[in-house]
Design a protein around this nucleic acid. Sequence first.
DNA 1: CGGTACGCCTGAAGGC
DNA 2: TGCCTTCAGGCGTACC
Length: 308
Amino acid sequence: MGSAMGDARVDRAGVPELPEVESVRRMLEPLLVGATVQDVVVRRRDVICASDDPPGGWSRSGRDASPAPAIEPTALRVGQEVTEIRRHGKALAIVADTGRCVVVHLGMTGWVGPVAVSDAGQPPVHTHVIWTARRAREPRRSIGFEDARRFGGLWCLPDLRALEARWSELGPDALTIRANALRLRAQYKTTTVKASLLDQRVLAGVGNIYADEALFRSKIAPSVRCCDLEDAQWALLAGAVRHELRLGLKWGGATVRSFRRPDGTEGKRQNALAVYGRAGEPCKRCKQPLSSAMLAQRTTVWCSHCQH
DNA sequence: CGGTACGCCTGAAGGC
DNA sequence: TGCCTTCAGGCGTACC
């Protein structure tokens, strides 16, 4: 059935946060770097956004009905060679030797990887763009961008300068975030620490799951205002963010739900989550039932006994 | 500035 | 079993 044999399957149903995106990047690197693009098929044009949309932004108004994006969708043109695959926060960029690149956002259900063609020769329904590329002395490979819910998208940029400009509007990458960098960006904010962790302009890469997990690890309540945090707490928080993201990466980017390993067995990371999805269940530290509330428009779970 | 609500979209999961 | 509702989520806009 699938042509994805041998490749580490990352979670497709869970929500891609930084570890999931980094897992995809690492999986793509050996497949695409050094490969020459031989074909580009755009099966759904509206997943391709205009290059001047705001960073991390989805200009819905410019998607469905627009006759054509500002830049031709095939920024990764036939004949170009892929030189690298970058990541910043939750964004990926496939960079070509010409400097042109395609920024990929996975949204909620997005994925990039080998296309599993059906017996009838059809790619999965939600595979919207397919690049066929070939490295010297290797078979042709079809790599697809799929995204059932289409909260994700692709942006075609003309050069690396445009990529850097775009990413400079995001906060520092969460995987290597240092306490001072985080504190300097958020310490005077009157918003809650949870909202700031989710704000990609403050810190790039953290989503709802890892925000709650990092707050639990650092024993900080999600509703605390940034400006009320002590220096020591910023240090704890930055360390907890790095720790949780690295843990997620170690598990192959598994988050929750239908994480499957290449052999089809269930992943184990979901069992390792301390608070996310465990509202009402006992805290792993103090055994008191975990609290749950909407904060920053997100379901938030924490231990009111351990976190202050 | 911040906060709140809503929209986008589909599939999984739960209720009846 | 099958239909119906609810929920999940990143990130934008609109409005207070």
